[in-house]
Design a protein around this nucleic acid. Structure first.
Lengths: 140, 140
DNA sequence: TTGAATGCAAAAAATTTGCATATTG
DNA sequence: CAATATGCAAATTTTTTGCATTCAA
């Protein structure tokens, strides 16, 4: 996929084997923290990449819009390919459980935001915090 | 507000002066990282609270649903009172700028999620990542 | 050739934990 | 009184940085 190379070059950046490996790892992982990406990259063979390269690579790819991230919990930025269509993550503030909802539920929301502000939201993989059915009851 | 005390007690927790100060700080700050809360608490007079107490206090209050948090960027959990009505945060992945949108834009979205999953999303203060008008152009 | 990216090691942040002591209920 | 919270210090965990070297374009 020289699409990747072209996108990078268009911004004065370069396509390195490390970045290619990061994208590959993300492709098979679908979701992952920088740490998980490093593990996957190592798994796929070849030399281990230092975390710093992972971080810098993910940043660069995110700047390009090829990669994006959400926070499922306090301590874990979760990265994914931007064009990988999936679900919305529902994170319960009570029990911490992460469930999912179809992106369709956010379709008109994205439109509303775009219309109202000109901001183009990435609702794919969006993380929403709230209360699951069980914990909602406990609150009372 | 002994509501706070009652809520805590109902869960076997206690209302301490430290927790009260944290809530007060959050009330006047509206938004803040644990660090900012600590600073505000100190500002309001009295002894400085160790960060660990802030963290534990915010956690306890969040468990109760009195406080909630979002991630505006990689490194900063931003806490706020759950019942403080405000806006949605739009965080640009390109330039990092944080803009806002009225909560109204998410009203039906919240309903959709609730209907589809039984999960009660806290859309107040929700952080959405995406691309601002300026950066969206750059991407091309 | 030349600036961008990597590797490594060291530094900074940010968050959590252990435990004795103080406090709330 | 008993159990929960605090304070402090130390330990973790996560992320960032400096710099010499390598490599893509």
């Amino acid at each position: 996929m020289s699409d990747l190379g072209a996108a990078l070059r268009a911004r004065g950046m370069r396509l390195t084997p490390q970045r290619r490996r990061i994208v590959d790892a993300l492709t098979s992982l679908e979701h992952g923290t920088p740490d998980a990406v490093a593990a996957k990259v190592a798994d796929d063979g070849g030399a281990t990449l230092p975390l710093s390269t992972i971080y810098r690579g993910l940043d660069a790819l995110e700047e390009l819009g090829i990669v994006s991230h959400t926070h499922l919990d306090h301590r874990a930025p979760t990265y994914h390919l931007a064009d990988h269509a999936t679900h919305i993550h529902l994170v319960c503030l009570g029990c911490g459980t992460v469930s999912e909802a179809p992106i369709a539920t956010a379709a008109d929301f994205a439109g509303n935001v775009r219309d109202a502000t000109g901001f183009d939201p990435d609702v794919t993989h969006m993380a929403i915090h709230g209360w699951c059915a069980g914990c909602r009851g406990d609150k009372q």
